[in-house]
Computed example of a mutant assay.
Amino acid sequence: MQLIKINKVRYRRHLNLVIVGCIAALVIGSLAISQTLIALFPDESGSHFNWNLLGVVIASVTIAWLLNKYRTHNFMAEVVYVWELKQCLNKINRKMPKLKAASREGNADALLAIHFSYAGSRLLWQLDDNTIVMDELVIQQTELDNIAAKFNLTLNADDYDPRILKQF
């Protein structure tokens, strides 16, 4: 996965529209489906929990199907990219203890994965205006750069390949 420059304004606008659209579709869809089912199959006891639950499930599955179907649409490009980047960073974070141990021994792949994680996190935090922990990230990046210099390695986030995580 490559880190790319994201238009922050476009990303935020499209993300907000997708979120609002999903919420509206869930509310309207689940109510419409459950009320239709209740009208078609009334329950004498007055409990319509199963029909309401089925309405929510059907609306949720439909929304997930639509999001998956339109994930390649130009409108969704930034939203999908950020979602995939977060998944990639999550995979790295789950292996971070092993990566840090290997990086202290000079493992180039571990150093590269950590470097990509820091660069990706920096990109995400800037998109989300989450600059509170940016100072801590700078300290960690400096430590990583010192380790890389100790082993005469040059780290470039563009060289990262997710397959290198399999060895950790």
Rank of each mutant, 00 (worst) to 15 (best):
M1C: 10
I6V: 15
N7R: 12
R12V: 07
R12K: 15
R13M: 15
N16D: 06
L17G: 13
L17K: 10
V18C: 09
I19L: 14
G21C: 07
A24M: 15
A24G: 09
A25N: 00
L26S: 10
L26I: 05
V27N: 03
V27G: 03
A32V: 08
T36G: 09
T36C: 10
P42T: 09
D43A: 12
S47T: 11
H48A: 06
F49H: 08
N52D: 14
G55E: 01
G55A: 10
V57R: 07
S60A: 15
I63H: 05
W65T: 14
L66S: 10
L66C: 12
L67S: 00
N68P: 04
Y70C: 12
T72A: 13
T72H: 14
N74W: 12
N74S: 13
F75C: 04
M76T: 03
A77G: 01
A77T: 10
V79S: 00
Y81C: 05
W83I: 06
E84A: 10
E84T: 12
E84Y: 11
L85M: 12
K86V: 07
L89M: 14
N93P: 03
R94I: 03
K95S: 13
P97A: 13
K98H: 12
K98C: 01
K100I: 05
K100E: 15
K100M: 11
R104A: 09
R104N: 07
R104K: 15
E105V: 09
E105N: 13
G106K: 02
N107Q: 03
A108L: 02
D109R: 09
L111Y: 02
L112C: 03
A113F: 02
A113I: 05
A113R: 00
I114E: 04
F116N: 02
S117L: 01
S117R: 03
S117Y: 09
Y118M: 01
Y118I: 08
Y118G: 01
A119P: 03
A119F: 04
G120E: 01
R122H: 08
L123K: 09
L123F: 06
Q126A: 10
L127F: 00
L127H: 01
N130F: 06
N130R: 14
T131M: 14
D135W: 00
D135T: 08
V138D: 12
I139M: 13
T142E: 13
T142K: 12
E143D: 14
E143W: 11
L144W: 10
D145C: 04
D145Y: 01
N146Q: 15
I147H: 05
I147V: 14
K150G: 05
F151S: 07
F151T: 05
F151I: 04
F151C: 06
N152H: 09
L153Y: 12
T154M: 06
T154D: 09
L155K: 05
L155T: 00
D159W: 02
D159E: 15
Y160G: 02
Y160I: 00
D161R: 13
P162Q: 11
I164N: 07
L165E: 08
